[in-house]
Design a binder for these strands. Structure first.
Length: 291
DNA sequence: ACCGCACCCTGAGCGC
DNA sequence: TGCGCTCAGGGTGCGG
């Protein structure tokens, strides 16, 4: 689900519901690998703490706490981070949706997939983390503690520069698309924006990274920046699960040029968009615009 | 060092 | 209606 733009939109909109507030209570579902830090340890560490800052690196959200610890969240594929009071049918199962009138705006009530609830000392809204597939993660880092997950991330995709990336990929023989998805090279790009950026840069996803020239890489990095920035501007992509912290949908799904458009005409040249499989994931491209 | 693959989990949508 | 299958925007760890 969420790639860099969705995580960044989430960061911006959830920050007012986190930063400056003191945590009064933490409720969780039972332990699972969603909890890299076990629920009881999480509770002990978070209760009484105030969030002082909310940062993002790639697809990770990093909340700095007033005691120097960091509380780290990853939304995985189906993670949803939102304030109590958000209303969106995306927060409900299809079965629950079906029993509702079409335009119903029901307030969300925590279900079995709501793994984390943060209550605060002030009377403002709770913050909830829901994740159906549990590919998301939450964990705590002590002051100065290193994290393998964060430590191996490459530069954030919004600020990465082509000349810094060149030595990391020009020798790699795997598909350029795989390299774009490699978080150790470029942190934040996922399947949608990899396909979209490759389209903008005119490069086929299956081309070996070693056959991408320096100037093509420069174009590709520009395309990554443009696609991510535009998606953030429109509120991210709401394709199946993603909702912003207030429950609103993003708008970028309407601007997709290739992702999940197999069989449809290219918006630039009219050729038929193709879908192939690279590294067990789908890749979409225009056979005429991309070489 | 790099690469491909299996795996983690749940639900939706499809053909039969 | 229900079954079995495929697919889904994430990442990790392993063996070759």
């Amino acid at each position: 689900m969420p790639e860099l733009p969705e995580v960044e939109v989430t960061r911006r909109r959830i920050a007012p519901l986190l930063v400056g507030r003191r945590i009064a209570a933490v409720e969780t579902t039972r332990d699972s690998y969603f909890f890299v830090t076990k629920p009881d340890a999480l509770r002990r560490a978070l209760v009484g703490r105030r969030v002082v800052k909310l940062d993002r690196h790639g697809k990770y959200l990093i909340a700095a706490l007033d005691d120097g610890q960091r509380f780290v969240l990853h939304l995985g594929m189906t993670g949803q981070l939102f304030g109590a009071g958000a209303t969106s049918v995306r927060l409900l199962s299809a079965a629950a949706r079906a029993s509702l009138p079409p335009e119903a705006q029901v307030a969300f009530s925590p279900d079995a997939h709501t793994h984390l609830r943060l209550r605060f000392e002030d009377p403002g809204p709770e913050v909830l983390f829901r994740d159906v597939r549990k590919f998301g993660k939450v964990f705590l880092l002590g002051e100065g503690e290193e994290s393998r997950r964060l430590g191996r991330l490459g530069e954030d995709a919004l600020v990465a520069r082509a000349d810094a990336l060149w030595p990391l990929l020009h020798h790699r023989r795997t598909a350029i698309k795989n390299v774009l998805l490699d978080q150790a090279v470029l942190a934040g790009v996922g399947n949608i924006y990899a396909d979209e950026a490759l389209f903008l840069a005119g490069i086929r996803p299956r081309r070996s990274a070693s056959r991408v020239t320096r100037s093509e890489l420069a174009r590709l990095v520009d395309a990554v920046h443009a696609v991510l920035a535009r998606s953030i501007e429109t509120g991210g992509s709401s394709i199946s699960d993603y909702v912003a912290p207030d429950g609103s949908d993003g708008g970028y799904q309407d601007e997709r040029r290739v992702y999940a458009r197999e069989g449809e005409p290219c918006r630039k040249c009219g050729a038929t968009i193709r879908r192939i499989v690279i590294g067990q994931r789908s890749a979409h491209y225009c056979p005429a615009c991309q070489r």
